[in-house]
């Protein structure tokens, strides 16, 4: 079947890119792209598939970063356990915060999530003994069974399986019975309730799952940087990840990685460019405006359709989105 073959080809290409990326870019940037991609996917799960715009996902990214950093540094745990601790911390936090935020919808929901994230930012700033305050949490080691994964290239390959687990988890959630219910709630919540779905509870589960994915990403980022700063919890982090998800294309899942790649490569390019270095905001802003105006559904659907033109007509159906892309109201 063409669909199967298409999927195998896609997986093979993805593996090749993942293995080769740190040879092309420097490893820290390469891992950054994959990790922010996972973070953007957590936003897409909530926004693209659930219709819920969280503007406070820095909370889960940051709390997981601090939790993973503390577990790795003070408990001396191997890095996968540190990452797990981060996931647990962010999911545990998402239960009460999600429960409270989801009592509102639309822009009010976004504002409440932002408010909670801002609260955490200031709490982390004050909790200096734990977080290091403005100095950040420094000297995070990363070990695995006595191996010190010092060089960033080694850590890239050590962390890659964890990131992939995150991607696969996101894919499974979206393409599960739960994912179908989530999309139906996004499209017509009253209808879903009349059928007997406790939509508030479904949205809370989606919120916690999304926070757990954001937490996995934040943990790996902390271990990669060996440092957690207050920037992890800053509101601009929440904004950046939503931007990446939108650039990549909502409701596409994989688009998040593309969005992260464009964003981070552009930032990297501008910071090393002699001419444009002084005005990175202007340039990035312009590029994003062009992308959003020119490719309204985002990078991923555009690329997929472009690739589709290379295929014989009979096989294009395999590239159709399995879940329709959402409208944001």
């Amino acid at each position: 079947m063409s669909l199967r073959r298409g999927q195998v080809a896609f997986a093979a290409a993805a593996i090749a890119v993942a293995l080769g990326l740190p040879r092309v870019l420097y490893p820290v940037l390469a891992l950054d792209i994959l990790v922010w991609g996972l973070f953007a996917m957590s936003i897409d799960l909530l926004l693209g598939f659930g219709g819920l715009l969280s503007f406070g996902h820095a909370a889960y990214w940051g709390v997981a970063g601090y939790a993973a950093g503390l577990v790795a540094r003070d408990a001396g745990m191997p890095f996968p356990f540190a990452a797990l601790a981060g996931v647990v911390a962010s999911a545990a936090l998402a239960f009460p915060l999600g429960y409270l935020s989801l009592r509102r919808t639309g822009i009010y929901f976004a504002m409440v999530t932002l408010a909670f994230a801002q609260m955490l930012f200031y709490v982390a700033n004050e909790a200096r003994p734990l977080t290091g305050g403005e100095n950040g949490l420094q000297g995070i080691p990363r070990t695995l069974g006595g191996l010190a994964l010092g060089p960033s290239l080694s850590f890239y390959y050590a962390a890659l399986p964890l990131v992939v687990v995150g991607y696969l988890a996101a894919y499974r959630i979206v393409h599960s019975p739960f994912g179908h219910v989530l999309v139906s709630i996004r499209d017509n919540e009253a209808r879903a309730r009349a059928l007997g779905y406790d939509t508030a509870r479904y949205k809370l589960v989606a919120f916690v799952l999304s926070a757990a994915l954001a937490g996995l990403a934040g943990s790996i980022e902390a271990l990669s940087q060996r440092f957690v700063s207050l920037d992890f919890l800053h509101w601009s982090t929440s904004g950046q990840v939503v931007l990446m998800a939108v650039l990549g294309g909502l409701g596409t899942l994989w688009g998040g990685i593309l969005g992260a790649a464009v964003f981070l490569l552009l930032r990297d390019f501008l910071s090393t460019s002699d001419v444009l270095r002084d005005a990175p905001g202007v340039v990035t802003g312009l590029v994003f405006i062009v992308i959003v105006l020119g490719l309204r559904r985002g990078l991923w659907p555009t690329l997929r359709n472009g690739a589709g033109r290379l295929l014989p007509r009979s096989r294009r159906a395999a590239l159709e989105p399995q879940v329709p892309e959402p409208e944001i109201r």
Binding site: R172, H175, S176, P177, V181, Y197
Partner: peptide, 12 residues
């Protein structure tokens, strides 16, 4: 069944 986020949608 709708809560099964760990299961493939083929189970539907």
């Amino acid at each position: 069944h709708g809560y099964r986020f760990w299961q493939a949608d083929a189970s539907l």
